[in-house]
Nucleic acid binder design. Structure first.
Lengths: 235, 235
DNA sequence: ATTTTAAGTGTTTATTTCACAATTAATAAA
DNA sequence: TTTATTAATTGTGAAATAAACACTTAAAAT
């Protein structure tokens, strides 16, 4: 088999920006890097693409290897290709963002792996250009969540409207009138009201809801307006 | 200097989906591939990333080399990484889309280079996964143009509102009421009315407008609503 | 002077968004 | 048992925005 001779070949990495929500705070999953360079520094989940796997496969494998997470929402974001972004050797990084319900994986992550959930407001210095990736990922999920119902991926399968509102308020760093918020989310038709309540947060208790998966998948592409004044969003 | 030994290295290509508008029809710039494999087949503009250039630099260089185009709107879209997408050797393709005023470059392209503008509705079979890239690019510009004023990049610096409307109608494959359209675009505050008219399209002539570049750059990220019923858009 | 053609413009109605506060369910305390 | 506390739940009116809809006008051609 012939080859494209004379062309340079490069390392290709995948880096994952993993968002999680615990009911109160938006967090990122970070690890202490286990190899040189920058060993023991904070880093995103990353690894090299192998010759027998596609980018999506690589992203899923890396996420699973480093955190045990499997089957989570994962979306390609952007490829970072500055020549000197890795000081050892030029490496292209294809970045992905992931959305995870923290509680579903919390124990698994902290016991089996050296990964940690860090509040988005207190991200430490990261290696290479990972800081830049995080900034872009924050913008990306805001942008996408303003139009599409991706934030449900951060919640457990049963959740309350107040929980959902806290999540939206965290992501958009704003506060929303709860009457208008509940009207908007219910108007999407995506929610199914359940019979029982979550009594953890209040005496009265808040009804649980779950996603109408039919409509969720069917309407995923359609624009959905949950955020007031989306005009002020930054891309 | 140490290296990451044991890791596989890959070819990295950049492929550009170049959109153009001639006042009537949306077109793509295609070339007949000049080397094997698939020599003489239709292809997007592409080339390998060199060791001393970033992805953006590679995209700009390739666009310039193959078409003479320089300083055009160019945006990274998506990275395609299926293992077998290039039959000769595994190659990652980082795709970009570009928006070009056809008239500004038409002669240059057809005389100096073997590139051709092909109406979007009559794209021939393309090599590799370029068809898939084109489909994604069509969705991408629709999506982005529904929210941001990128389509002005396809027009000359002086244009009329009827021209602009035809462009929007082409991109969204729809027809728009001209009273509502002109109200919407003028409401953005992005347009400056000029004193003279374009007499080519009608006896009466249509006033030329140009972009208010201040506002254009300032408001580029803000959501701008020009399309009726954007809910029906597909991501 | 008349015809032709596309450009330009305004109003009414319907829909959506926004601002705003009282009531209720359930537990805890008296 | 009653009362207090706390968060959940719910509705309405005003304002802004979007949608539907048709005639007049400028300029060239006849």
């Amino acid at each position: 088999m012939q080859k494209y001779s004379k062309q340079t070949r490069f390392l290709i990495a995948v880096d994952c920006i993993v968002f999680g929500f615990d009911g109160e705070t938006l967090k990122l999953l970070l690890i202490k890097r286990s190899f040189n360079p920058e060993k023991d520094k904070w880093s995103l989940m990353g690894g090299f693409v192998q010759s027998d796997e596609s980018l999506d496969q690589a992203a899923n494998r890396i996420l699973k290897q480093l955190t045990g997470l499997e089957g989570v929402y994962l979306e390609q974001m952007y490829s970072f290709g500055e020549t000197n972004r890795d000081p050892i050797e030029r490496t292209l990084s294809v970045s992905y963002f992931a959305l995870v319900d923290i509680h579903k994986y919390e124990k698994q992550i902290s016991t089996d792996f050296h990964a940690e959930w860090v509040p988005l407001k207190r991200i430490p210095k990261l290696i290479f250009d990972h800081q830049e990736m995080v900034e872009m990922a924050k913008k990306s999920i805001r942008y996408k969540a303003a139009l599409h119902p991706i934030l449900f991926e951060l919640l457990p399968s049963r959740f309350t409207i107040p929980q959902l509102q806290i999540l939206y308020e965290s992501v958009f760093n704003t506060s929303i009138d709860k009457r208008n918020f509940s009207k908007r989310v219910l108007a999407t038709g995506l929610l199914i009201k359940l019979a029982d309540k979550d009594k953890a947060g209040s005496k009265r208790g808040a009804y649980y809801y779950q996603l109408n998966m039919q409509k969720y998948y069917a309407n995923f592409q359609a624009f959905i307006n949950i955020i007031p004044n989306p005009d002020s969003l930054q891309a």
